[in-house]
């Protein structure tokens, strides 16, 4: 947990500094106000993040140095891939949804994931992919009357 705290804290620090030095001054809004400028609350939130993350990083680093724990260990690429592929899979279907209605691609989204997760029974494919899709079709076309989404 120490290493996670250290590296995640560091990421939060970088993000907070980016917010304080660039994002909030540029995109945080401006204009005359009584007492509470538009950027103030966001700036306070960022300072809370920055101070908390800095304390976390310092405390984790001190403990790791004291107990001689390494700051970097070998990265297991297989483990990372197992965590990343679901995001890429869903992102692929989100990109597809820009061009095609979700109702059309939904059976492929569900069936594809079932296949990846080692399901091989055809009736499960049919039930799992067609029932929710049919539900969405009926909901949008007949009940809400907004057409195929």
């Amino acid at each position: 947990m120490l290493r996670i705290n250290f590296w995640s804290g560091l990421a939060v620090i970088i993000f907070s500094i980016t917010l304080l030095t660039w994002i909030i001054p540029t995109f945080g809004g401006g204009g005359f106000s009584f007492g509470l400028p538009p950027q103030l609350v966001a700036t306070i939130g960022t300072w809370i993040m920055l101070l908390s993350a800095s304390s976390l990083v310092v405390l984790s680093a001190v403990t790791m140095v004291r107990h001689k724990h390494p700051f970097i260990v070998g990265v297991n690429l297989g483990e990372i891939w197992h965590q990343v592929w679901p995001f890429l899979y869903v992102l692929f279907f989100i990109v597809l949804a820009i061009y095609l209605p979700l109702t059309w691609i939904a059976p492929f989204l569900i069936a594809g994931l079932l296949f990846i997760l080692d399901e091989r029974r055809w009736h499960i494919y049919l039930i799992c992919s067609l029932t929710p899709t049919a539900g969405l079709y009926i909901l949008t076309v007949y009940l809400m009357r907004i057409g195929v989404v």
Partner: peptide, 13 residues
């Protein structure tokens, strides 16, 4: 607690 505060800060932003 520190992580909680950092998460809260992000929520505020």
């Amino acid at each position: 607690f520190l992580k909680g505060m950092a998460a809260g800060g992000l929520g505020i932003i």
